[in-house]
Structure formats: structure tokens, C-alpha cells
């Protein structure tokens, strides 16, 4: 029983290592959203394109949708764009685009260049809708169910891993 004194530092060290290993996967820069599991905030935005409608609250009550805040000036938006194109091409879930603090002509050129994955696009020129949604940087994406409840949120670019692990299972669960 006298050995516990010698084992104790090892135990403390192991606990410390445990915290550090856990810390490797934490993202302290991500602000957890209080909106998950709650009704999505209002969405009433004028259209960006002549060919596609803007956004209205009714768009959040028709079925599962992915609401994506994007801007042409946003670098990480380019990173996630191919995945959004893929989601749209496979018709997994309609993507509603919110064009955040962008010049309409820039946004149009961006979509013409990279392709347009959005079912509808609304213009959030002053960023007020983004603030209502608790957005603090683009891109951010929200999965909203047919009752208008936010199921999941992605902060920063949507990567295949995030999509497969946190979004796809929820989508599959709902569409059973």
C-alpha cells in the first residue's frame, strides 16, 4: 500500500494526457449554436437571380432543406462548393442559398463560374438575416426539417466528413 505515492504522479500524468488528446479534436473557435433543435429564424429575402425565387418562411416548411450562407468573396465557400454541387446533382436535399453581404453581380459571376447548386437564392445584403440565424462567418450551413426545426449546423466549409457523419444520417433518418 506504500506504493500508491509513486503511482499517483503517473495517474495524474495519464489524466493530463487524456485531456490533451481530447483537446486535439476540440474546435474552440466554433461557437455552439443555441438554435439547434429550435425553430429556424425568419427567412424573407429578395431573389438574387431573375430565374430563381428568393427565400420565404414557407420554404422551411416544405420538407428537409439545407440552408447555406455563402459569398463570392469567401474563400472557404469555394472549398465546399464542389460538395454542394454534388449534393444538388444527387438531389439529396434542396439547398437554399443565402448570399451574404455580396455584390449581386459578383455573386452571379461566381455562380456562373463554379456552377449553381441552389434551389433558391435570397440576398442578405446587410447581413441581418445572418445575425438572426446566429451566423458569424461564411460559409455556414443549417439542416432544417419539414417543421422548420434546425437539426444540425456546420460552421465553416462543409467537408465530406462532416456531411457523411453529421448530416447524411439525419437526412436518412427523416426520409425513411
Amino acid at each position: 500500500m506504500r506504493h500508491w505515492k509513486y503511482i499517483l504522479p503517473l495517474v495524474i500524468f495519464a489524466v493530463l494526457v487524456g485531456f490533451f488528446v481530447r483537446g486535439l479534436d476540440l474546435k474552440p473557435a466554433e461557437v455552439p449554436s443555441p438554435l439547434i433543435g429550435k425553430p429556424a429564424p425568419a427567412l424573407n429575402l429578395k431573389p438574387l437571380l431573375d430565374t430563381k425565387p428568393g427565400l420565404a418562411d414557407a420554404d422551411l416548411k416544405g420538407g428537409l432543406v439545407l440552408v447555406n450562407f455563402f459569398a463570392s468573396w469567401c474563400g472557404p465557400c469555394r472549398i465546399e462548393h464542389p460538395l454542394l454541387m454534388d449534393i444538388a446533382a444527387k438531389k439529396i436535399v434542396p439547398i437554399l442559398g443565402v448570399n451574404y453581404k455580396d455584390k449581386p453581380e459578383d455573386a452571379k459571376a461566381w455562380l456562373a463560374n463554379l456552377g449553381d447548386p441552389f434551389a433558391k437564392i435570397g440576398v442578405d445584403f446587410d447581413g441581418r438575416t445572418a445575425i438572426d440565424w446566429g451566423v458569424y462567418g461564411v460559409p455556414e450551413s443549417f439542416l432544417v426539417d419539414a417543421n422548420g426545426i434546425i437539426l444540425a449546423k456546420q460552421i465553416g466549409p462543409m467537408m465530406q466528413k462532416d456531411w457523411n457523419e453529421r448530416f447524411l444520417p439525419k437526412i436518412k433518418e427523416r426520409s425513411k
Binding site: V31, P32, S33, P34, L35, P41, I131, D132, W133, G134, Y136
Partner: peptide
């Protein structure tokens, strides 16, 4: 603001 960004704000 807490309603939108949580206590972190």
C-alpha cells in the same frame, strides 16, 4: 443576442 449566439456572446 444570447438567443442567436448563445452565452458565448
Amino acid at each position: 443576442l444570447v438567443g442567436r449566439y448563445g452565452d458565448f456572446v
